[in-house]
Design a protein around this nucleic acid. Structure first.
Length: 464
DNA sequence: ATGTAC
């Protein structure tokens, strides 16, 4: 009796070993090869008859569990219906990815925001409500990626662009792998949380996380000084123009490692999942792995917000100005949320929470305005809105087709000083933020407009 | 988005 025979009978995956064990025991008690195969075939045909006990009980239970798992991993033949905002702004590939997500057996509802574009698994701009399960790639690699705004009691004219540039160079850190030396670090309660001791993975990442707290990473992350224009009294502010700090940052190495680890776990646990949905492999929230991811994801979310806290504290501290008001929101995370009277896991991967009355931040680009918005709690969008303008050109396409001179001219015309940055982040690589906002008037109201003046992004090598 | 190794 070897494994080839067992595979031929249809025992696949992890049950082969159990079938092999049972066959060995039967052979030892005197049955010949064909008799054993005959018995195994009967177990395979009707495992329910063998669950009561005996040499085949364990095998029968495993066969049944495997079948149930397989059935539950099967995709629906067609996607559940979902709302799309600004469909004419969204590339076909992103719609196709959302269609696959809406066919998952765990999916209960979803929506696509007007800044949507292709991502791994769930598209960026995708909102997905599932039942009792979380999808690591439904949250994304940069867990807890978020926005924060600090409004300062300072007249924007009081800070020159040159001074703002110096402050950004001195107090912010950009680029893969960057961190602060021990004697330059600030304390933050997030580093004292017990959650770090919760699992080996988090314990191993704590040191690096402490080093990277208060840094900004790369890609589309930025820190900028600009002018916040408040037209009518709101946010606890009188109408007027204020100096403000706006940042886009994530959970750095911590979130990336957590995402990578649990994506692998999910994919290996759901190996029978349709290849079209492989990157949407999920973890049951009632499993150990699902719980471990949930705790690690939320820690990475709090860590990302702590990053912003420190970025803003360093800059406002250097200006000796206490912020009048701060607004922040995560746009890559999963939340427990009531959807139609049921508790669901709502994944927002590049989507801003927009419950009725909740403040949020929707950035434009390095040279376009960003907006403070207030959610309208639209249930069809699962109380969400876009998380930005959304890419119009992929990174490589932008680098190929856009010109550096055009970018310089645009920045000059708009009075924006840029530190670092690249063509892949040029305003022309993004959809027009005004178009995107126009498509979601039933999701958010605009509260105030922020105009960028001095922007720092990655590849700025002139750290002081 | 991250910064190392299916």
């Amino acid at each position: 009796m070897n494994k080839k025979h067992l595979l031929k009978l249809g025992f696949g995956g992890e049950v082969v070993e159990l079938a092999h064990q049972a066959a060995r025991i039967r052979a030892q008690s005197g049955l010949d090869h064909t008799e054993v195969l005959d018995e195994l075939q009967k177990v395979q045909a009707a495992p329910q008859n063998y669950l009561g006990g005996g040499v085949y009980a364990e095998l029968a239970a495993a066969v049944q569990a495997q079948r149930q798992g397989r059935a539950s991993a099967e995709l629906r033949p067609s996607p559940l219906p979902y709302g799309i905002w600004g469909a004419e702004l969204i590339e076909a590939g992103a719609l196709g990815q959302m269609d696959v997500a809406m066919r998952l057996p765990i999916t209960r509802a979803g929506a696509l925001m007007p800044d949507a574009h292709i991502g791994y698994g769930l598209p960026i701009g995708g909102v997905l409500a599932t039942e009792n399960a979380v999808i690591p790639y439904g949250v994304g690699v940069d867990i807890g990626c978020s926005m924060m705004l600090s409004v300062l009691p300072v007249d924007p004219q009081q800070l020159s662009s040159d001074e703002a540039r110096k402050l950004l160079l001195r107090h912010t850190r950009f680029g893969a792998g960057v961190g602060f030396q021990k004697n330059q670090r600030l304390d933050h309660p997030v580093m004292d949380e017990r959650t770090w001791q919760d699992q080996g993975l988090l314990r191993s990442l704590q040191g690096k996380a402490a080093e990277q707290l208060g840094t900004s990473g790369s890609g589309n992350h930025f820190v900028e000084f600009g002018t916040l224009k408040v037209d009518s009294a709101d946010l606890g502010l009188e109408p007027g123009e204020y100096l403000a700090i706006l940042s886009h940052s994530g959970s750095r190495g911590l979130g990336a490692q957590v995402a990578g680890h649990f994506t692998k776990v999910a994919e290996s646990q759901l190996s029978e999942l349709d290849p079209a949905a492989r990157r949407l492999a999920w973890l049951g929230l009632d499993t150990d792995a699902g719980q471990a991811y949930w705790r690690a994801m939320n820690l990475a979310g709090r860590y990302a917000l702590a990053n912003h806290d420190q970025i803003h504290a360093r800059l406002s501290g250097a200006l000796n100005a206490e912020p009048l008001v701060q607004v922040s929101n995560s746009h890559n995370l999963a939340w427990k949320q009531d959807v139609g009277g049921q508790e669901r896991i709502v994944h927002r991967k590049g989507a801003t929470p927009a419950e009725a009355g909740r403040l949020g931040l929707i950035p434009g680009s390095m040279a376009d305005p960003s907006f403070v918005v207030r959610g309208l709690g639209n249930p069809d969008a699962l109380s969400s809105s876009s998380h930005g303008a959304g890419r119009q050109l992929g990174r490589k396409a932008a680098e190929r087709s856009l010109s550096r001179d055009d970018l310089r001219r645009t920045l000059h015309e708009r009075g924006v000083t840029l530190i670092g940055g690249g063509l892949d982040e040029a305003p022309q690589a993004y959809k027009r933020i005004e178009d995107v906002l126009a498509r979601q008037r039933d999701l958010v109201d605009v509260v105030a407009e922020f105009t960028p003046r001095v922007v720092r992004m990655d590849t700025g090598k002139q750290d002081i």
